[in-house]
């Protein structure tokens, strides 16, 4: 067993510097690396390029970094629900690149899997494809999209062990597995760090080889953006 366990979020974020490019897991507020985001706020690193499907809400998730003007550029597929984001985007303080959700996932996966680029049909014929190489395969047009190059990946899992093995829960899985191993250093925070040997190898979603540092997360808020219910009758 190669030990990836670090004692706390401070140790996990060693080496994070201003100007770096970060991959951050999560869809909306579901499955976001809450502890890593709090520590990025505490470190007050600036000029970050953040690649994440969404940009949080005003007072939670990546919204916390936006409040402190730590993000220079966001690469996302959907960025509603955040007034401060909107203000910074309209005033030109924040550079925003919107890309299709599946392309975002696949550019992570390409980085993880060692592909320099992939062809996708998404965005062909739209402004997303402007300036990009296109190619026809079997009569259909595709756009060349490059693998992300990032310094850190911050992911959140449900359970993990010191070997870095991860298991995700529900739809909190989303981009997290695709971002593991897609940056120079992958930092995983888990709700429950279990003893090595406690996880069934058959059930592991991400093998520890894709993770450099893992730590026991704490104080998870796990906010719900749209609480919708079926009335009991």
């Amino acid at each position: 067993m190669i030990n990836k366990k670090v004692d706390n979020v401070q140790d996990a974020l060693q080496g994070v510097k201003s100007g770096m490019t970060m991959l951050l897991g999560g869809f909306g507020l579901c499955g976001i690396p809450e502890n890593a985001i709090s520590e990025l706020v505490a470190l007050n690193v600036k000029n970050l390029t953040c690649i994440s499907n969404n940009a949080g809400v005003d007072d939670f998730g990546l919204g916390l970094l936006l409040q402190k003007h730590q993000i220079k550029k966001m690469i996302s597929s959907y960025v509603g629900e955040n007034d401060e984001f909107e203000r910074q985007m309209l005033s030109g303080e924040l550079d925003v690149e919107l890309i299709p959700q599946g392309t975002l996932a696949e550019r992570c996966r390409a980085a993880q899997a060692g592909f320099p680029a992939i062809y996708t049909p998404a965005g062909y014929g739209t402004e997303v494809a402007e300036g990009k190489e296109t190619r026809e395969f079997d009569g259909k047009m595709y756009v060349l999209e490059h693998a992300f190059k990032a310094d850190f990946s911050f992911v959140k899992a449900w359970k993990g062990d010191a070997a870095g093995n991860l298991i995700f829960k529900g739809t909190a899985r989303n981009f997290n597995p695709n971002m593991c191993g897609a940056a120079k250093i992958t930092v995983a925070e888990v709700e429950e760090l279990v003893p090595v040997g406690a996880l069934d190898p058959n059930q592991i979603h991400i093998p520890g080889i894709f993770v450099q540092r893992i730590f026991q997360g704490k104080d998870y808020e796990k906010r719900i953006e749209q609480r919708t219910i079926t009335p009991k009758n």
Binding site: G28, Q101, A105, R109, R173, N178, E225, T228
Partner: peptide, 29 residues
């Protein structure tokens, strides 16, 4: 139902949902 919402179980509209028997979860890729 009220009280059974799970923050780890939402749809693409970010609404809380449920999973039916036979459901599966997977990553974005």
């Amino acid at each position: 139902f009220e009280g059974e919402e799970d923050a780890d179980l939402i749809n693409a509209g970010k609404q809380t949902i449920t999973a039916l028997d036979g459901a599966s979860y997977f990553d974005s890729a």
